[in-house]
């Protein structure tokens, strides 16, 4: 009967063995790691899950050479605009998508390798004042961008060679869209979270804006990570990077909220809070697992269905953790330090 409850988290209960260090890679030329991700890469008939590391001015692809050993195979040099984010593309092979900009995204580019002339290529997908971007199934990208007068929400399809095909626009809400999530199990549904803390739902096929539902004032600037539909309800996983600690709820990091899209009413289902004594977080979600870098330099991992913190990776002696991303497949956590060291943990 308790819609939203705080599960007490005791650090003693956290099973350190739930995260097992598998391997490390270190880019000796790097001193400014900004993001890490994984991508499927096929070469000479062999398809492998590779690691992509991004610094401000270059992006590198790392292949597994031997067990627990990674080798850098390609490095794309970028121009004057710094890389600020890698954009994972689900179900895609041999394509790396990056967002570049200063304080916010100004460009989206694709990076690829051409075997025809043995060269590394870059392809410009979009420019503008881009507020959010997400890679969708079937080699598509959705983004929101603002001009002074209006907001544009656009989907572009990408070819295998990195060319962009005709775009499709979605009806924009009045407020700025800050994050997107595909609705799992519903091919044509997409959700977004906005600057005034609303969830919006689109029909991807028709571009219609179907519903706008308010998340509530307790958790400002909520960010959607995952969404799925079940039994007539829309479940959305939200993170709350700026929520303040409260007596009733502790320090909220993630919530699963059930929305009834017919009535726009909602209820919290599971609540995941920060471990006691920790603050600040920048999170990533895969399946029912969430990970976040805390301001202490530790990484916390939660089971979102239980609402429990399941692992806490203390700051590495060589330097605090700065990045926490899930690999696009398998239960693998990519933990990064600013000096370019990436540690792969099995979860």
């Amino acid at each position: 009967d308790i819609a939203e409850h705080l599960t007490p988290v005791l650090l003693d209960d956290l099973r350190e063995e739930s995260l097992q260090l598998v391997s490390k890679l270190k880019d000796s030329s790097s001193s400014c790691a900004v993001d890490v991700s994984t991508v499927w890469w096929e070469a000479a008939g062999s398809r492998e899950l590779c690691v992509v590391t991004a610094c401000e001015s270059f992006v590198s692809l790392w292949k597994p050479l031997a067990p627990h050993c990674w080798g850098k195979v390609y490095t794309w040099q970028l121009g004057e605009i710094p890389v600020i984010q890698l954009v994972p593309l689900p179900d895609t092979c041999n394509l790396v998508c990056i967002a570049l900009g200063d304080l916010e995204i100004g460009e989206i580019r694709l990076l690829l390798y051409s075997s025809e002339n043995d060269s590394l290529k870059q392809s410009l997908v979009k420019t503008g004042n881009i507020k959010a971007v997400l890679g969708l199934r079937d080699r598509r990208l959705v983004s929101s961008s603002r001009t002074r007068q209006e907001q544009q929400v656009e989907i572009v399809s990408l070819s295998e060679t990195g060319r962009t095909r005709d775009g499709q626009t979605l009806m924009p809400p009045e407020e700025t869209v800050l994050a997107f999530a595909e609705v799992e199990g519903m091919r044509d549904a997409l959700v977004g979270t906005t600057a005034v803390n609303s969830i919006v739902v689109w029909n991807l096929k028709t571009g219609q804006l179907l519903k706008k539902m308010h998340v509530g004032y307790s958790y400002p600037t909520s960010i959607c990570h995952r969404a799925y539909s079940d039994s007539g309800l829309l479940f959305v996983v939200l993170s709350h990077p700026h929520a303040k600690e409260s007596e009733c709820c502790g320090n909220p990091a993630f919530r699963v909220i059930a929305f009834n899209p017919r009535t726009a009413r909602s209820r919290g289902v599971v609540f995941s809070s920060l471990p006691p004594g920790h603050a600040g977080r920048q999170g990533d979600v895969t399946g029912a697992s969430a990970a976040a870098v805390l301001t202490s330099g530790a990484i916390a991992v939660w089971d979102l269905l239980l609402g429990q913190c399941t692992a806490l990776l203390p700051p590495d002696p060589a330097g605090p953790w700065a990045l926490a991303r899930w690999a696009t497949t398998g239960a693998c956590l990519l933990a990064g330090q600013r000096d370019g060291t990436i540690s792969l943990y099995r979860y």
């Binding site: 029909n203 219609q208 179907l210 009834n260 017919r262």
Partner: peptide, 23 residues
Amino acid sequence: CSESDLGPISLNWFEELSAEAPP
């Protein structure tokens, strides 16, 4: 979650909202 909290639930909410929303 129950209907008393969230109002009438429809399994076909996506199709229904698509039929009702402006094109």
